[in-house]
Design a protein around this nucleic acid. Structure first.
Length: 570
RNA sequence: CGGGGUGUAGCUCAGCUUGGUAGAGCGCUUGGUUCGGGACCAAGAGGUCGUAGGUUCGAAUCCUGUCACCCCGACCA
C-alpha cells in the first residue's frame, strides 16, 4: 500500500470526548469515527486490524472443528416469545415493527435463532454433536455506551453454539473451545487470564471469561499469586478457614459510641481493628423466609458483601435489595449504623469469616451504642453460615494454593455450558439410539472481536501511540523514504524495496506522501506499525538502511538489501 | 432511569457574566524558504454560533422548549 493513495486521517490533538487511551488513540490514528452514541465506522486502517483479528478467530474456530454460518441481524419476535426472553430482556434489546406491523428486534445474541434452525434440521443423535459459529454484528442498546468500541451498542462478535447428546460431551466441547480460546488470545499477543465467571442470567453450570489484563478494565479479577486459581471477583468463592474459632475471653459490654455509624468510625473510636468488628446488613427476604420480610447478613468489618452470592441464598430475595432504612428502624428500633447480631430480630446469616471472629465489636441495636466482647454461641445463637462476601486481596486462594491479588481485566471472551435452558424452552429434541426424544445440551462461546482491538491497545501503547504485534498490525512494516523528491537514489531504493517486499508477501506500506521526516515518524509511531525502515541519503551513502522496531529505543543500521530487511522480520 | 456538563470553522477551544455585524491555535489551499522526530514566512478559503420559539431597535450572548453528545451513578452481562 502507498500512503499517497491511502486516506490516513491522523490527528495530533486528543479528542475531548474520549476518556480511555485506546479510544483516544483509535480516533487520533484514524481507526474509527463516531457516528452516534455507541456507533462507530471503521475506517480503512482500523478495518485492516479488525479483519486480521477476525481471521485469527476464524482460523482457530475452524481448526477446532466449529462450522461457520451467518444469521440475520434482524430477528422475528416470535422466536424470542418462544424462548420466553421477549418479556425478560429489557430495553437493551432494540425492538421495532416492519411495514406489516410485525414485531422484530436487532439481535443482541443468537441462541434463539440457532436453536430454531437446529430444530428444523436435526432429528437424530447421529447428527450431533455440532458447533456452529458466526462472526456477526450485534446490537445491544446499552444504557450507557462508553470507551469507544470497548462498550459500543453495535459491535462485532464471534458467537458459537454447540449441541450435544449429553453433559459429558458438552464438557468435552467446552474444553475444546477453551483450548481454542487460549490459542486465539495467545496469537493476539495479549496478556490474558481465563477466569471463573458467574454465568448470570444466561444460566448454566460452568462458565469462564477470558480477560485481557489492563488497568482500565471494567472487571475486577481475583488471581492467585503462586497458584493457578483465577476468577472474576463476582464469582470468586471464599471458604471457612478450617481453624476453630478462638475461645471467648472478653465479657460482653455495652459502650456509648455517639454518632459513630460506619465500621471505620467505630473502629477508630474504640481503637479496635476492622477485622475485630462484625457488621450487619439488612436485605429483603425471599418469599416466606422471614415474618418481617427482612434478613440480616453478618460480615467481618473489613469485608464487602458480594451481591451476586447473596441473591443466590435461599433466604434472600433475588435480585438482592437493601432494606429501606424506615423498615430497619421499625423492626430493629434503631438506625442502620447500630445494628448487631446480639438480639437481632430477623433471621441472620453470617459470612464464614464473620462467624469465625471472637470477642468482636458490633452494633447494640440501640442508637449511639455498640457492644464489645461479643461472642457467637454465648451472647447470641450460633449463626447459619454461608459464603457471602467479596474475596479480598491477601486472602488465601479458595483452592488452597497461593494468595489472592486483584487485577483489572477487559472481558474479551466468555464460554458457557448452558445445559438445556434454550433447547428445552424451544422444545428442541432429537432421538437417541433407543428411539427416545432427548433434549440436547448446549454450550455457547463468545468473543468480542471489535472490543479486542481496543483491549490490545490498552495493553500495548506508549506516549507515541499504539504498538501492534505483527499478527494484527494494520501493516507489518513501513518504509519511510527521506527527501525522495530530492534524491533519486532514495526514491529508487525505496521503490525497489517496496516492490520486492510486496513480492515476498510482506504486508508493507510506503510513506510516499512527501512529508517531512518528523511527521512521517510520528504517524508511523501513532498507528503502531511494528517494523520501520528509514531510507535516506545519509545511510544510503554507506550502503545501509535504518531499521527500528516500534518497541525498540533506538534504530540500527542494516545492509541496504531486501534480504537484510526480511531477516529482521523473520 | 437519576444527577452533572457541553453544543461556536474539519479538530481543540475562547467569546456569553455586562446584548451592538464572529475569534485563536492546529489542519486545509497557493507561493516562497526549508528538509532526520509533527518547520518558517506571506497570502487565502472556511462558521444561518445544535435546533425551535420568545424578549429586544438589535441575540452566539438573556428566557423557554427541544435534540444530540460526554461524565458520575444505577441497570445489564
Amino acid at each position: 500500500m502507498r500512503l499517497s493513495q491511502f486516506p490516513l486521517a491522523t490527528s495530533k490533538e486528543t479528542p475531548a470526548d474520549a476518556q480511555v487511551i485506546s479510544h483516544q488513540l483509535m480516533l487520533r490514528a484514524g481507526f474509527i469515527r463516531s457516528l452516534g452514541s455507541g456507533l462507530y465506522t471503521w475506517l480503512p486502517i482500523g478495518l485492516r486490524t479488525l479483519r486480521k483479528i477476525e481471521a485469527i478467530v476464524r482460523e482457530e474456530m475452524n481448526r477446532a472443528g466449529a462450522l461457520e454460518l451467518s444469521m440475520p441481524v434482524v430477528q422475528p419476535a416470535e422466536l424470542w416469545q418462544d424462548s420466553g426472553r421477549w418479556e425478560v430482556m429489557g430495553a437493551e434489546m432494540l425492538r421495532f415493527k416492519d411495514r406489516h406491523q410485525n414485531d422484530f428486534c436487532l439481535g443482541p445474541t443468537h441462541e434463539e435463532v440457532i436453536t430454531h434452525h437446529v430444530k428444523q434440521d436435526f432429528r437424530s443423535y447421529r447428527q450431533l454433536p455440532v458447533n456452529y459459529y458466526q462472526i456477526q454484528t450485534k446490537f445491544r442498546d446499552e444504557r450507557r455506551p462508553r470507551f469507544g468500541v470497548m462498550r459500543a451498542r453495535e459491535f462485532l462478535m464471534k458467537d458459537a453454539y454447540s449441541f450435544h447428546m449429553d453433559a459429558e460431551d458438552l464438557g468435552r466441547e467446552y474444553q475444546n473451545m477453551r483450548q481454542a480460546y487460549i490459542r486465539i488470545f495467545t496469537r493476539l499477543g495479549a496478556d490474558f487470564r481465563a477466569v471463573k465467571a458467574d454465568s448470570g442470567n444466561i444460566g448454566g453450570a460452568m462458565s469462564e471469561e477470558f480477560h485481557i489484563l489492563a488497568g482500565s478494565g471494567e472487571d475486577l479479577l481475583a488471581v492467585a499469586e503462586n497458584g493457578t486459581y483465577a476468577a472474576n471477583v463476582e464469582a470468586a468463592e471464599t471458604r471457612p478457614s478450617g481453624k476453630p474459632r478462638a475461645a471467648a475471653t472478653a465479657a460482653l459490654s455495652k459502650v456509648a459510641t455517639p454518632g459513630q455509624k460506619t465500621c471505620e468510625q467505630v473502629s477508630k473510636f474504640l481503637n479496635v481493628p476492622l477485622t475485630g468488628k462484625v457488621k450487619l446488613l439488612v436485605v429483603k427476604a425471599a418469599e416466606g423466609a422471614s415474618a418481617s420480610g427482612l434478613v440480616a447478613i453478618a460480615l467481618r468489618g473489613d469485608h464487602q458483601l458480594n451481591e451476586i452470592k447473596a441473591a443466590k441464598h435461599p433466604l434472600i430475595a433475588s435480585p438482592m435489595t437493601l432494606a429501606d432504612p424506615q423498615d430497619v428502624q421499625r423492626v430493629f428500633g434503631c438506625e442502620v449504623g447500630y445494628l448487631g447480631p446480639v438480639g437481632c430480630p430477623v433471621p441472620l446469616i453470617a459470612d464464614y469469616a464473620a462467624a469465625e471472629v471472637a470477642d468482636f465489636v458490633c452494633g447494640a441495636n440501640d442508637n449511639d451504642h455498640h457492644l464489645t466482647g461479643a461472642n457467637w454461641g454465648r451472647d447470641c445463637a450460633e449463626p447459619q453460615t454461608a459464603d457471602l462476601r467479596v474475596i479480598a486481596e491477601g486472602d488465601p486462594s479458595p483452592d488452597g494454593v497461593g494468595t489472592i491479588r486483584y487485577y483489572r481485566g477487559i472481558e474479551g471472551g466468555h464460554i458457557f455450558q448452558l445445559g438445556t435452558k434454550y433447547s428445552a424452552a424451544m422444545k428442541l429434541t432429537v432421538l437417541n439410539e433407543g428411539g427416545q426424544a432427548v433434549t440436547p445440551q448446549m454450550g455457547c462461546y463468545g468473543i468480542g472481536v471489535s472490543r479486542l482491538v481496543a483491549a490490545v491497545i490498552e495493553q500495548s501503547h506508549d506516549a507515541g501511540g499504539m504498538i501492534w504485534p505483527d499478527a494484527i498490525a494494520p501493516f507489518r512494516l513501513i518504509i519511510c523514504p527521506i527527501g525522495s523528491d530530492k534524491s533519486a537514489a532514495v526514491k529508487s531504493a525505496a521503490d525497489t524495496l517496496y516492490r520486492e517486499l510486496q513480492a515476498a508477501g510482506v504486508d508493507v506500506v510506503i510513506d510516499d506522501r512527501g512529508n517531512r521526516p518528523g511527521s512521517m515518524f510520528a504517524d508511523a509511531d501513532l498507528i503502531g506499525i511494528p517494523h520501520r525502515i528509514v531510507i535516506g541519503d545519509k545511510s544510503l551513502a554507506t550502503g545501509q538502511f535504518e531499521y527500528k522496531a516500534r518497541r525498540a529505543e533506538k534504530a540500527e543500521l542494516i545492509d541496504a538489501s531486501t534480504a537484510a530487511v526480511l531477516a529482521k522480520l523473520a
